[in-house]
Amino acid sequence: MVKRIIGRGLLAGAVAGLLAFAFARIFAEPQIDKAIAYESGRDAAQEALDKAAGLPPDMGGGPDLFSRTVQADVGLGVGMVFFGMAMGALFAVAYLLCLGRTGRLRARTLSVLVAGGGLLGFYVVPFLKYPANPPAIGHAETIQQRGSLYLVMVLCSVVFLAGAVWLGQRLQTRFGNWNATLLGAAAYVVAIGIVMALLPSLGDLSDNVRLYGHHATETPLPLTDPRGHIVYPGFPADVLFGFRLFSVLAQLVLWGAIGLVFAPMAQRLLQPAPAGARPKEASPGAGSAPDPVTT
């Protein structure tokens, strides 16, 4: 059972990754291209300013290891599909842990609920504190801190979510399904809210304050010359909004597909009796030849 569930989780994840890739290729890439164009233009403007000020030219920017076409087609595809499969595998693990512990929930309903938990825990809640950013947003000096902070957010959000489910189950006998669910959700909101309040905003990181002054985020502000005239605009708001909106929608596609592709497969595997007839396959008898649990 374990192997078959994990296999189906991987399959659902691969399908979901492909769909999310198609979505990203169509909707995200134009935004990413605009962001990169903004970045190049800004770099050129900065260079002109530096030259005028008599500063040595900045040799920043790594070599282009892959062309933009490769990044946008193959790289994005490989990234999305492998990410989908990794999430599908973790989804299957969570699903297996839930099996038999969720009362009267049907196998396919559980699939959708676990996928919803994945969406919330791995993406939406971390996004609330540290939203996705297109290229051109993000200072090289802070990548270490930003990386760690993001992972702390993901870790807390996933662990707390599991804890909230566990808590809700513990409270269910005393308060009933509805109230226990609400109490679990409230505990989650409070716990993650405390973490979000404690973690710093990206603009507050010491390197950012030192180098760029005090701002809320790392989103580039207008570039000004020494007299205060704007020589290059701030990051276009519409591009940022579009990128973030599509990023959220792609995760909806990804987790929605995982839950919905996995649901009928799990239903067939775990509760294979639409007419109510006892199927032969479902009663392997303890200890019979193929291990019913791990196969």
Binding site: A24, A28, E29, I32, G62, D64, L65, F66, V70, Q71, A72, V74, G75, L76, V78, G79, M80, F83, Y123, P126, F127, Y130, P131, A132, N133, P134, P135, G138, I143, R146, G147, L149, Y150, F243, F246, S247, A250, Q251
Partner: peptide
Amino acid sequence: EFVHDARHFLGFP
């Protein structure tokens, strides 16, 4: 660099 676009789009710094 290879998974660069996916990394941004999936929400990673």
